[in-house]
Design a protein around this nucleic acid. Structure first.
Lengths: 355, 355
DNA sequence: ATCCGGGGGGCAATCGGTTGCCAGCAGTTG
DNA sequence: CAACTGCTGGCAACCGATTGCCCCCCGGAT
């Protein structure tokens, strides 16, 4: 009975084996692969054939040691369970693969400490880093960016290349949409205070509100996930509002759900807008109106920046690259509820299912 | 104005720098770190201090070259957007980190081809591989497992160590639950045909049904995600049933939603059970009754197996390790609808919202 | 016939740790 | 006092690919 479980170690094939077999020097084998043209075409062909027969596979570690390039980039995300990052990672992987790079994903699990340690490990082993929604301090990020090319996503850090979405325009689009529907008071359901995007969105909302003559207030912070939205719904149920903009889609989805269990209908009584347009936004009922971010493009753009920095570019440190957003109008927004009787709230609550 | 964008390259510190600075040989520096006890405690301490001052960081690539260990394992998942993998990856990362290993995540994007190419890249660069729900052929998997330690998750492959959940028991628990509520016909909403778990679940369901004197039928296959469930709902709406077991939670969630938009209430008219117990199962309304898989433990177990194989163990090729499941009863299951009038279907449909 | 240019290939150093082997030294033991 | 042992540290050979530099050879020009 052969031992099939432990991988047999039949001495891995190296360029030296190929060289011997082909009757050439190892350097020629190396060049046959990495420097086409430098070697006579016929020789190169022969070498490649023999390498193939022998099952030669270049050892990336050895290559990395002499070239000082691992051909890997790290993408650090805040939470692998957060669907917001799925498309971003896809984009990053596609862009990396196109350039012959592999992506190493690191999950910070919403923890500054874990993020640091993951980074600590990775920094020496990769050629560049994409920091998606980092929770670290600006100075910590700058520190790292002195060692390796770093691009920051969804956040602006001075002196470090950044890629962000157009939060200002997104906020304005959201308010214009609500304003057009007839709302004049809007509540912002805030995300984590440590989030750069949260601050940005709230600020933009206030500015846009001023221009559009709307009133905005803010509640929170809440965790940027569905349970967070459900908690926000509790708070909102106590003080009715007609329109809500949530920090992100998960919060918005939880909110809609929390309101629903309290018998408050969306968009009937409350209009809700999210941010990001994650896949789930189009799948819930009612479909969530949201400020769509170009997630995939975000991943691609950030990765390309890192790659160009690796290839020697200096990675334009200037204002952050701003990617456009658009309003994805679905069914969670509508004209404000016309108050026909001061008792509507009571009715609504009474109609709520017991569970 | 200093150039802060391009990481300055102040010649990275190596053991040789530390050695010179400490007046010892490089080998001593190396041992001071990797072979505690082999070096005089005082000397080791001095070396560590100096290394610290100089900012020495071991180069993992160089270490990997001489030890033939990269301290990385690859975890290949089918789809990064699938929340099923989130907890698994967390578990894998935790187990790996505890042993000083880093996880390289590879997303196969549901494609056999991408899975292969990702693996191709990774196989030479990592010490071991966890294949979560691979779509590759058994023989391809066996091939890879000859080169590196491989553990397969959620699937059984002869001659390769595997970790699976107790699908048979899960199926039985689901049917017992439905039977106890009074259902006697159950429909299985199938997932992808390429899925090993799908075949397993359907088979187990049939066997359990026979023992419990229930009737089961099967519709599908459907994509294992929310849109897939919505499509299944269309099909189900045409031929009413009282109880459904879905291939996984996302399918079940989509199903509930699809039924809801058709005015068919869950669990009022149809009871729905899912598989896996992803985070969302507890967040939707109604809460989804599901066969809970120990996702985190799955990741931990598979990773530990790979690790032990790397450390020289032979990775028990025997029957797969089976992790227990339990039934998570929530609100998507109830007693079957009592038909009081043959018109109920019409009423329900009429009550559905237009959109 | 001599010189020149360049294509094609080999030599050997190098990347940064790791580790087997050897040697010096101090403390023991007979 | 000699032989032995255990502890420490250094030397140098790897690990496998890359690459600067040198050399040889052949064809074409003078």
């Amino acid at each position: 009975m052969a031992d099939l479980s432990a991988p047999s170690a039949p001495r891995v094939v190296t360029i030296y084996d190929v060289a011997r077999s082909a009757g050439v020097a190892a350097s020629t084998v190396s060049r046959a692969f990495s420097r086409p043209g430098r070697v006579n075409a016929a020789t190169a062909e022969r070498i490649r054939r023999i390498a193939d027969e022998l099952g030669y596979r270049a050892n990336p570690v050895a290559r990395a040691l002499s070239t000082a390039r691992t051909n890997m980039i790290a993408v650090v995300i805040l939470d692998i369970a957060n669907p917001f990052y799925a498309e971003i990672v896809r984009g990053a992987q596609a862009a990396a693969a196109a350039a012959g790079y592999t992506v190493v994903l690191a999950d910070a699990q919403e923890s500054d400490r874990l993020e640091r340690s993951a980074l600590e490990r990775a920094v020496t082993a990769v050629d560049g880093i994409v920091l998606a929604s980092s929770r670290m301090s600006d100075s910590a990020i700058r520190m790292i960016s002195k060692q390796k090319p770093v691009v920051v996503l969804n956040r602006a850090v001075v002196d470090v290349p950044c890629v962000v979405t157009d939060n200002a325009r997104g906020a304005r689009l959201a308010l214009e949409h609500l304003g057009a529907l007839g709302h004049d008071h809007v509540t912002y359901v805030a995300g984590p205070e440590a989030s750069w995007a949260d601050g940005m969105r709230w600020r933009s909302l206030r500015e846009a509100a001023a221009e559009l003559s709307l009133r905005v207030r803010r509640i929170g912070p809440f965790a940027p996930d569905v349970p967070g939205g459900i908690r926000a719904a509790e708070q909102l149920a106590a003080a009715p509002v007609s329109a809500v903009v949530a920090y992100n889609d998960q919060l918005a989805i939880g909110l809609v759900q929390g309101l629903a269990t309290r018998g408050i209908r969306v968009p009937g009584e409350v209009s809700v807008i999210g941010f990001d347009n994650i896949a789930a936004a189009g799948l819930v009922t009612p479909g969530l109106t949201t400020v769509a971010a170009p997630l995939y493009a975000l991943g691609v753009t950030a990765t390309r920046h890192v790659l160009s920095m690796i290839e020697g570019g200096r990675g334009h440190t200037g204002p952050p690259a701003v990617l456009p957003v658009r309003l994805m109008a679905r069914s969670s927004t509508a004209e404000p509820y016309r108050v026909t009787s001061p008792r509507r709230r009571e009715r609504a609550v009474a109609a709520a299912p017991l569970a």
